[in-house]
Amino acid sequence: MITANFLLAGVGGQGTLLASDIVADIGMRVGADVKKSEVHGMSQRGGAVTSHVRWGGRVSSPLCEKGAVDYFIAQEMLEALRWIEFVKPGGTVLLSRQQIVPTSTVYGADQYPVDDHVVATIKKVAGTVLLIDAKKTAEELGNARVANSVLLGALSAQMGMPPDDWLAVITVRVPQRHVELNRQAFFAGREKDWRI
């Protein structure tokens, strides 16, 4: 039985919940007990969104424990830094190279952290860091919206899992007309070595 804790973090509108639904479905497909938890409600209004997914034999808590996340999928640099404490020592971070600036940095004095600081801090916790050009790769394929499939492709490779179950779930979960593009994005993420 495969046991794993996943944390996904992004900003309202980035598709964090859909991506985590996909991870949860894959867990069910490979026979794990699965729980998933997120807080929504305000995400539409520019808030941070996190989603926890757990696979295991019998999963109790629907939340991952701080310091126990195996795979952290960060869709945005600031959110990566915000939630890094959840990752277990030596865990894996998939970091999407994307910045979404909060309004408080516009009307106020707040500073958005620089990329080097984000990466250096993450490296203090994680054993493996993948810095993924998810948005750029997606845009090159023709649609920024498939960025999450780039990340999921990279995740599937990190976990050493064959692509079939992932593609089967993605096919059901994404809009019909975008299936092929998502498949391409998945493989673009899967086949490149993003480690830093």
């Binding site: 520019g46 941070a48 701080k66 830094l81 890094i84 020592p89 309004t103 500073q111 958005y112 801090t121």
Partner: peptide
């Protein structure tokens, strides 16, 4: 004990909900 990473992250801007 709980696992607590000691990190110097600096002050992070929050993302409070805002009017659309």
């Amino acid at each position: 004990p709980p696992i607590e990473h000691q990190l110097d992250k600096g002050a992070l801007p929050m993302r409070p909900p805002v009017l659309c």
